[in-house]
């Protein structure tokens, strides 16, 4: 019988530590598939953040480090500068990247650091129990915006993929979803492209993955998939915001 689908060899037997219905597991699996398909398992170094993917190091058979909160781009900078031939992939959530580590990610882009960033935006702090993030939607109820996020006190949600695309050192920026098979396949294409650009020595490549968080959003997993289209897409539309192409520099 022909094998049409299998678990990536690069994933260990350990269970993912994510909640049921969470998008992280899908994104992690895509990452493992891409590293395997691009034959980068001996070159890949993953930089994990503080957040829900804090234990993801146990799921991958590639070298990895778990950075301090927000500092994954700085650790990534050190690693990539020391090992320019390796594939350094920085994985961050919205609390990590947009809140604690806004300076680090923006300056990594400003310097045009030659690594890839997977930014998982689920509009909430997942691991700490569902607090408001800078990406939380207006009106969205969280444990620290119990009456809904208000502009007067918390400002507007941050559109990272658009924002970072305006930095000259950013080479590629795209926003994708992982709420249905078609979107998942497109997400895989975007992440693959980001990593390919890195291996061609291009500047910072950035993929924002809008992800569902049924636990944090307080909805059923199936409803969370729908909410990506009905709620998240209004603030975070799909799109390629920057692509300097294979001939850029």
């Amino acid at each position: 019988m022909k094998v049409v689908y299998k678990r990536p060899e690069l994933l260990t037997d350990a269970h993912f530590s994510y909640c049921g219905g969470c998008g992280h597991g899908i994104i992690n699996k895509l990452l493992a598939e891409i590293i395997e398909e691009e034959k980068l398992s001996e070159k890949a170094i993953l930089v994990w953040p503080i957040g829900c993917s804090v234990y993801a190091d146990q799921n991958f058979k590639v070298d990895s480090i778990c950075a301090l909160h927000g500092r994954a781009p700085s650790v990534g900078t050190g690693l990539k500068r020391a090992l320019p031939e390796n594939a350094v992939i920085v994985y961050q959530g919205d609390g990590d990247l947009v809140s604690e580590g806004m300076a680090e990610i923006m300056h990594a882009a400003i310097r045009g650091e030659k690594f890839s960033v997977i930014f998982v935006n689920n509009a909430i702090f997942g691991m700490t129990g569902g607090q408001m993030a800078p990406t939380t939607l207006l009106g969205q109820e969280t444990t620290t915006s119990p009456y809904g996020r208000k502009v007067e006190t918390s400002g507007y949600p941050v559109k990272m993929a658009e924002l970072i695309s305006n930095v000259q050192g950013c080479y590629f920026s795209e926003r994708v979803y992982v709420n249905n098979p078609k979107n998942i396949m497109n997400a895989k294409k975007a992440i693959r492209k980001a990593i390919q650009y890195q291996m061609e020595g291009k500047g910072l490549s950035f993929v924002e993955v809008v992800s569902q968080c049924p636990t944090g959003w307080g909805v059923k997993p199936l409803d969370s998939l729908k909410m990506v289209e009905t709620e998240m897409s209004k603030e975070y539309p799909l799109g390629v915001f920057k692509d300097m192409g294979v001939n850029g520099n």
């Binding site: 700085s74 650790v75 900078t77 500068r81 020391a82 300056h107």
Partner: peptide, 16 residues
């Protein structure tokens, strides 16, 4: 950009 970042960059090189 900051000493926060510089010291974490050092951690990255040390990890390599």
């Amino acid at each position: 950009e900051t000493e926060v970042s510089a010291s974490n960059m050092i951690a990255g090189v040390a990890a390599a």
